[in-house]
Design a protein around this nucleic acid. Structure first.
Lengths: 212, 212
DNA sequence: TAGATTGTTAATCGATTAACAATC
DNA sequence: TAGATTGTTAATCGATTAACAATC
């Protein structure tokens, strides 16, 4: 209920801390300090404490944080204490890769549908999922109470896909198409643009040679 | 040569502007204003002008920007006026998808090598590329003057892969493994963490239900 | 000239860092 | 108690926005 605005970077880091804590916990380590978390995740100790402080007091002064405890809290904050059903729209190479990606399942995401409007792809099996036509999206979204959709369709189709997803009741979209989506305010969208990330690197490489 | 620090977000947006301008240019539109660019890319007009102003004066007061001209400038800034050879390490689903991804080639990236240390993957063909053992990385990097590497190996192997890439002379790494890489200061690293992006969305969805 | 839009400065906003009192 | 580390406040740093003079 707090009206406190939390920086997006804080949430991103929380995800990183969470994964780091999982690894630490697996090693059997019980207690960890903000300095050690910082060391392991490449941020500053003050940053770690500040990020956590948005959500509560999870540590013990003079001691540090209980690993299992803090891990649970970070997962709770990220909304990962229950599983999420996800649909993927676009069964090309990237879409297929995501459906097969074990990392998602491990963090609580269940891909319950893959869709395409390319007839040569419909009916294909990806793991245990059959690629369905996009007209099936509303049914699957309703049946599995899907809140999240991933768009791996080409840029030219992305907006149409987004419209279908929104109309079906999806509340959050992860968009891999290099295009800006128009959605209602209540729908969350994040873009992952693979080329853009490479271009940040070429920018820096180019700068070193020529300078700007 | 300017010592001016440019925000990473500016570079990301420049990449978005650049792609938007390509689309606008294809429509045959000659002139565009900061307001129209802003409208098309989801930022503020002041932001657009500020971002561009880091690099020069590309517009004409009272008129706007010449589309072709500005497109050229943004490509130049991003280092996309010549092509980049890239290697991909990790020939799993994601690696395979990236090799086949046409978006890279279109923006000036040529994937010249795919590597894995899994014997069942070595020798497989991805498009016209044969998957090679990781011991071949140094040779290919040198032969093609590769400056950029993409890591799509599992987290457990990512640091080893990074070491090999750095030793081979790679200067920039795009890392898909959910782990923090240790590399020398002169090597640029960016992470793309697919789960983290989903977790930002679940965070927001969770917040709406329970509040934080 | 009048209208439009840039480039740039100053004001605002927000995020990170430093420092330290609280406390185990 | 002495040493350590958190939680939090204040200071700093950086990025975005608003406003407007310059100028086409």
């Amino acid at each position: 209920m707090k009206a406190l605005k939390i920086p997006e970077a804080t949430i991103t880091r929380l995800s990183v801390y969470s994964r780091f804590l999982e690894a630490i916990d697996k090693k059997g380590i019980v207690t960890i300090s903000s300095g050690e978390i910082a060391e392991g995740t490449g941020v500053s100790p003050a940053q770690v404490r500040k990020d956590l402080a948005y959500f509560g007091e999870f540590g013990t002064r003079g001691v540090g944080y209980n690993v299992k405890d803090l891990l649970k809290h970070t997962l709770k904050i990220l909304g990962l204490t229950n599983r999420w059903s996800v649909v993927v729209v676009g069964a090309g190479n990237l879409g297929s890769a995501l459906v097969s990606y074990r990392g998602f399942r491990q963090r609580g995401f269940d891909i319950v549908g893959v869709f395409d409007n390319d007839l040569t792809k419909i009916g294909k099996k990806l793991l245990d999922l059959e690629v369905l036509g996009t007209e099936e999206i509303p049914r699957v979204v309703k049946e599995h109470n899907v809140k999240m959709g991933v768009i791996t369709a080409p840029a030219s189709a992305a907006q149409d896909v987004a419209n279908i997803l929104v109309k079906s009741g999806v509340k959050a979209i992860l968009n891999f198409a290099p295009t800006v989506l128009n959605v209602p305010d209540h729908v969350h969208v994040r873009n992952i643009d693979l080329s853009t990330k490479l271009e940040i690197l070429t920018f820096h490489l180019g700068m070193e040679n020529e300078g700007y």
